[in-house]
């Protein structure tokens, strides 16, 4: 559990989220997220030690391995901002 989010936390979360914020936005976020977390921390007092999931699906009920028609070829790249010869295109990816 955490009581106070810092600028460092915001930077970490911003990287995980792939969203950039300017300094002002970060400041606002720290105070807002801290307020929200204070509310979330109300859950801390609840004892959940005897709880377990009871919703299951049986293996036999899963879908059979049967091919159905794939997407219409023209539809696949319809919304892609960059495409070429049937591929989606992004700037060269160097890192693994």
């Amino acid at each position: 559990m955490k009581n106070n989010i810092t600028l460092e936390d915001i930077n970490y979360l911003s990287e995980l989220s792939a969203i950039e914020f300017n300094e002002e936005e970060k400041k606002e976020l720290i105070s807002q997220v801290n307020n929200i977390i204070a509310m979330l921390n109300e859950c801390a007092e609840v004892d959940v030690s005897n709880v377990s999931n009871e919703t299951f699906e049986l293996l036999s009920e899963l879908r059979e391995d049967e091919v159905k028609v794939s997407l219409d070829k023209d539809e696949v790249l319809k919304n892609a901002p960059r495409k070429s010869e049937g591929y989606f295109v992004v700037p060269k990816v160097v890192d693994l």
Binding site: S84, Y87, F88, V89, P91, V93
Partner: peptide, 9 residues
């Protein structure tokens, strides 16, 4: 030959 990466899903 260029600065692109192609994606095939």
């Amino acid at each position: 030959d260029c600065d692109e990466t192609l994606i095939d899903f």
